[in-house]
């Protein structure tokens, strides 16, 4: 059952460098945005940029985009568990400590 799926494909250096440039660009944007007062949107934008960056890393550097779909299922289940726990935690938290 030794299925070596990567011997056939040779991802190009150029694509990796492009992804890296995108990651550095997004880092610059998120640092620059921190200088502005975006009121309630500061955390939302910072997290949105972090999510885009992590998608770039998982899809290209970690090859999830081209790998077997089973890895996407793994990641989906893990993220789903995380979201359920954080939502339940905040139901509890907002009930105990309502924002004034």
């Amino acid at each position: 059952m030794s299925e070596n799926t990567h011997t056939q494909q040779h991802p190009g250096y150029g694509l990796y460098i492009l992804v890296w440039a995108g990651l550095v660009g997004l880092t610059t944007i998120t640092v620059a945005l921190a200088g502005f007062n975006l009121a309630g949107l500061t955390v939302v934008t910072a997290l949105a940029i972090a999510i885009v960056k992590s998608l770039l890393v998982t899809n290209y550097f970690m090859h999830v985009k081209t790998d077997s779909p089973v890895f996407r299922v793994f990641i989906f289940v893990c993220i789903a568990i995380f979201i359920v726990v954080i939502v339940l935690t905040f139901f509890d938290l907002t009930y105990r400590f309502p924002l004034k």
Binding site: T30, V31, L33, A34, T42, V43, A46, L47, I49, A50, K53, S54, V57
Partner: peptide, 11 residues
């Protein structure tokens, strides 16, 4: 990638 904005950029 997540630690950096949450600790350094939230002001």
């Amino acid at each position: 990638i997540f630690l950096f904005p949450l600790f350094y950029l939230i002001h």
